[in-house]
Amino acid sequence: MTLASTLLLAFAMSTDAFAAAIGKGAALQRPHFREALRTGLIFGSIEATTPVIGWAMGMAASRYVAEWDHWIAFTLLLLLGGHMIKEGFSQSEDEENERPTRHSFLRLALTGFATSIDAMAVGVGLAFVDVNIVSTAAFIGLATLTMVTLGVMLGRVLGQVVGQRAEIVGGVILIGIGSLLLMEHLGVLA
């Protein structure tokens, strides 16, 4: 693979995470750059690891990953998004001012994993191409780190504009990402 195709692949793999990060940033009370970077590091680490796992699984498991990846991602994003929407509707105006300043590691890791399952499937495909999986995974991780950090900061602006319903918007974004992934894999968006 050429450097240009590796970079394109890296940024393509980070688009789902970018959209999810906007929702995560919107749900927080004015997140600082440090929190955006923390979120980017978590997502980037996961996004860099999953293609390596997929690559290691090789041809033997590709059928199973390809058959279920979209359902796993959809279910995780639906549950996380639904929880965020529920929280958004249950907040009073006083609680709006008490939005969290950071998300738990577990919540970020689950979202990061849900948005990186496609990278695992890509990793399986990369096992059959002349590619340095370590450098490719590093590019994917760095692209995701960058895009997610920017996404959280963009979500900060969105959170200020949307106000009390920012968590609802974030939940809708996560469900939308999951739905798009599912429709894409089912061939609805072909």
Rank of each mutant, 00 (worst) to 15 (best):
F74Q: 05
L126Q: 03
G178V: 11
D130H: 14
L145H: 04
M84E: 11
S92W: 09
A17V: 00
M120W: 08
G163H: 12
K24C: 10
F113T: 12
T75F: 14
V52P: 03
F11T: 09
G178N: 05
G125S: 14
A114P: 01
Q164D: 07
G176I: 06
R63S: 13
A20D: 07
T111N: 00
K24M: 10
T50S: 09
A10L: 04
V152L: 06
G112C: 08
A190M: 11
G159F: 09
A36H: 01
E184A: 08
R165S: 11
G141M: 01
W68T: 14
H32K: 11
L8A: 15
T144A: 00
L37W: 14
A119W: 10
Q91P: 00
A21C: 04
N132G: 09
Q164I: 06
F113W: 11
A137Y: 05
V162T: 14
F11V: 15
L110V: 09
W71C: 04
R38V: 04
F139Y: 15
W68A: 07
F139A: 15
E35Q: 15
T15R: 07
L126Y: 06
P100C: 02
L126T: 02
A137P: 02
E93G: 01
E95A: 12
V148P: 00
Q91T: 10
E93Y: 06
A60P: 02
V129H: 11
G58Y: 03
A21N: 08
P100V: 05
R156H: 06
L182R: 08
W55H: 15
I46V: 14
M120V: 07
